[in-house]
């Protein structure tokens, strides 16, 4: 079973839920797919055993073959080419690596080069098989790295995917194919607003989902009212608790020091299995 953890708003506690849930279950794999700023490893402190670079294909032009017909520029949806006055320019940072230019070039003048855009790290933390991706600094596209992280999915385990905040391509790439998505929010107007966006996204993707409210006690009741009105299961509430916050600030998942919470996370897992 693949469970993804997403949110609309950032900083609501996705990684807190992902790491504590992983520590409460057995035979589990945790994938940190927030490759722009992965942080689950800070809490789980895995021993990294394998590091694999992630490369995307980028085109290079063999100018002895190119006759500047401009078909590549015409085809490229991301405008990575400019062709004019017997000149061709390539903007590799705009290339999404689809390889279409190689197919449309009538002179076979496109050569595929590879560019490293990130790295996938694999290791073990306690009994958790841990995988995370890191996008290279300055690289704009997270999706190829997320896809590589997800290639490591082991269907024989309970797979937990920690996604990035928001509702853009990296989130879609991370939650795509999951059996269930846990949306983590905080009970504030900001949390509610961005939760609404995430709900719309998941409904479109036809992935079943439920909500976890973190920092319960701050803000207002609007998230709960919203969930009730929309028929969205409220899976768990984690209170605004100084002890949890202190443990978090020291990089310790709170189930390790507050073992009673393991039962709550097991209940959360049961609820997920029922709703999925």
């Amino acid at each position: 079973m693949i469970i993804s953890i997403a949110s609309g708003k950032g900083g609501t506690g996705k990684t807190t839920i992902a790491t504590n849930l992983a520590l409460s279950l057995e035979n589990v794999q945790l994938l940190d797919c927030d490759v722009e700023e992965p942080n689950a490893h800070i809490f789980l402190k895995p021993e990294i055993k394998i590091q694999t670079p992630v490369c995307i294909p980028v085109p290079r032009v063999d100018e002895t073959k190119c006759d500047y017909c401009g078909k590549c520029a015409e085809f490229c949806e991301f405008n990575a080419f400019a062709v004019f006055n017997k000149q061709i320019m390539i903007f590799p940072e705009l290339c999404h690596g689809c390889g279409g230019c190689l197919l449309v070039c009538p002179k076979n003048a496109m050569v595929e080069n590879y560019k490293e855009v990130g790295v996938v790290k694999k290791g073990v933390a306690r009994d958790i098989e841990f995988v995370y991706g890191e996008l290279k600094l300055g690289e704009p596209m997270a999706v190829p790295v997320i896809r590589k992280v997800k290639e490591e999915i082991d269907e024989n385990k309970t797979v937990i995917i920690d996604a990035s905040p928001g509702t853009s391509c990296p989130v879609i790439a991370a939650v795509h194919g999951s059996d269930y998505c846990i949306l983590v929010t905080e009970p504030t107007p900001f949390g509610l607003h961005d939760l609404g966006l995430a709900v719309e996204t998941l409904r479109k993707m036809k992935i079943p989902f439920g909500v976890v409210i973190n920092c319960d006690g701050i803000g207002d009741q609007k998230v709960q009212e919203y969930c009730k009105k929309e028929g969205i299961p409220l899976l768990l509430k984690i209170p605004m608790d100084r002890r949890i916050a202190e443990l978090y600030s020291r990089g310790i998942p709170f189930v390790l020091e507050m073992p009673k919470w393991k039962d709550k996370f097991l209940e959360l897992f049961d609820a997920v299995q029922i709703h999925a």
């Binding site: 520029a73 405008n79 400019a82 004019f84 006055n85 320019m89 705009l94």
Partner: peptide, 18 residues
């Protein structure tokens, strides 16, 4: 290029150059 997703400047410059 006014409504393209990205690389509008490149596409526009190419059109103007041509």
């Amino acid at each position: 290029s006014a409504d393209t997703m990205g690389g509008a400047g490149i596409q526009a410059a190419q059109a103007v150059a041509n």
